[in-house]
Every structure is written in C-alpha cells, then in structure tokens.
C-alpha cells in the first residue's frame, strides 16, 4: 500500500560520467516505481566530461528521496539532487510553425509581444515562432496559437539552475 502523501513537482539533477546506456539505467529506476517522467534534458555540465541529466517528475517527497538514493547508487552517477520549484530557476523553450498566411495577423503579433516570443524564420509558405519561459507560459501561447492550425509544435524539456549550491566540483576533486 502506497502512503498517499501530497504529490509535488521536483526537478532531479543527476551528474554522471559520459557513458552509453546510462540513460536507460536511470530511466529504469523511475520506471520501476511507475513514475512518469514529465520532461528530461541531457547535456554537458559545467565540469568537463561530466554530463547532467535533468528530470521533472511529480511525486511525494518521500518517494523522490528514495529515487534519488537509488539513482545515486548507480556506479556512473557522481551525484544526484532533487529540488522543489522554489529552489530552482528554470526555463523551457518551444517552437511553433505556422502558415505564412497568418504572418500579418494583428492578433498573432500582439500575442507574440505579450509572450516575449519572436519570429526566427520566415519563408513563403511558413514562419517559425520561438519562445522561452515557464511551462505555463508555453502552454498559454500554445492554446492561443492552436486555432491557427499549427503545422508543427515542439518544446524542450526543462533546464534548471538551482538556488542552493551543488557541491559537485569539490566532490569530484575528492574522488580523484
């Protein structure tokens, strides 16, 4: 029986060695506990040859603590952290492809101004809008642009910087 504690959104940052197959190993830990990964990003971190995975999940804190323990236990994971929404600054990016027929639509133009979105490409048949913001910002813009018949829509996973320090460089020094 699962104790139904309140679910919350957590951003999990995992610093790892750069090895093939690690994504599989990490996602399996979420899978095993039947946790849906809302978004995921992988990139090089601030440390040479160290990668950083950023997962966003919505689970009780009790559970995320255990998951982070199990992530950290993986051989090639250097450190794993979890943070609440208040502890991080985060952004997502999205792109929308629309027919050029709407390029001079005033309503669209106004919406773009409000959303700090801008046009990155224009061709004779389509144009592309790009925006960066919180998930909700992108959701709202999506709802607004949807009636125009989106030709394509794509959004990134979350990228996040934490307010608290993540003592990862020190840790690596210790290991070396």
């Amino acid at each position: 029986m699962l104790i139904m504690e309140d679910k919350q959104k957590f951003t999990v940052s995992v610093y790892t060695e750069n090895n093939i197959g690690l994504l599989n190993r990490l996602s399996a830990i979420f899978l095993k506990r039947h946790i849906n990964i809302e978004s995921m990003t992988v990139c090089e971190s601030e440390i040479d040859h160290v990668h950083r995975f950023t997962f966003v999940v919505e689970v009780p804190e009790e559970q995320i603590r255990k998951v982070v323990g199990q992530l950290e236990k993986q051989i090639e994971v250097i450190r794993a952290f979890y943070h609440t929404e208040e502890e991080i600054i985060y952004q997502e990016t999205a792109m929308f492809k629309l027919s050029t027929a709407y390029l001079y639509d005033e309503k669209i133009q106004n919406k773009l101004k409000l959303r700090r979105a801008h046009i990155v490409t224009i061709t004779t048949s389509f144009f592309i809008i790009e925006t960066t913001g919180l998930k909700e910002d992108i959701d709202r813009l999506y709802e607004k642009l949807k009636p125009y018949g989106l030709l394509q829509f794509v959004r990134s996973g979350r990228i996040a910087i934490t307010r608290p320090k993540m003592a990862i460089s020190e840790l690596l020094q210790e290991f070396n």
Binding site: G21, N24, R25
Partner: peptide, 14 residues
Amino acid sequence: IVGISTPVTKWNYQ
C-alpha cells in the same frame, strides 16, 4: 543484452 540486463546489474558494459 546490455539493455536487457541494465535494471538487474550493478554495472554493465559493452
């Protein structure tokens, strides 16, 4: 086999 054994190994490598 690396993919299959990932969740049940302490470590694996090809």
